[in-house]
Amino acid sequence: MPQNNAGHAPETSKRTSPRVYTPRSQSELLQLLRRHPGSRIYAGGTALSGLEDTGRLAIPATVVALYGVDDLRRIARTDRYLEIGANATIRAVSRVGSNVIPKTLYDCLPHIVPPGLRTIATLVGNVCVQGTTTTSVAPLIALGSSIEIRRVGGSRWITVQRFRSGEGAYLQPGEVVTRLRIPLSPWDAQVYRPSEDGRISFAALARRSKGGVDAVRIVIGTRLPEVIHNRELDAELTGRKLPLPDRDIRAAAERMRNTAQAHDPGFSSFDLYRIERLVSWFLRSLTRR
């Protein structure tokens, strides 16, 4: 069969216009979700389109839009946390400033969406879109961030890592993510390095104390929905004296490489090489600092 213009088989199903609900408050939002449990949440809407220039966006059949719920735009800071509402845009988050937002996340913000969409795309939306984890998911997991999931009559907090790993934590019908909570723990070293080809991103944090490493977190974002995070490795590096011996750095890097290989057999040797090198570079940089 011939291809259509863009080389894809066309969709032949008949269209029906989507039904869109625009609640003005969180309680109205939750009620709507209870009444329409199969509906999709619309926040920034920047993950909707494909390449086809059809004059229309691919909106699901029933949509509950968040943009009318003003209190979900809120970005609040306490001594221990930064809380970001589900309606807060990437631009709004970045304007909180680099002195508040942890560096590993701040450095990631320009890479999440194209500049023309920063004003509507939301950070929570980026966490919720099932796809790659090369953008904000890796730094948020490294920072130990959590999300608040609400439904009529209840709410719960789960970590972003658990949410993205799919350990029974995906949204249930009638539920919505309302807030993102990022711990503001002090870190001495924070890194976010996306690869130019978009295949991997590297997020790492470390805290030092009394000549040793107090805590380490190394998370690799990939093109798969889950990140690479070897928590055992983090734990083993914690409490070590600095400088780390070169053989230990090499061993740690190799373990991360092996974890990555097990995570995605589709990784090329170049991907694995980069992961190994980034880990050893980060651990060596702790000594240099």
Partner: peptide, 29 residues
Amino acid sequence: QDCSEGRCGSCLVIFEGIIVSSCMIPMFR
């Protein structure tokens, strides 16, 4: 309108006071 996915910036408008690629704004919004 060019790329139809908010990357190229051909369709920028000021929407509710903010600059945005209008190809990604559905009419219901």
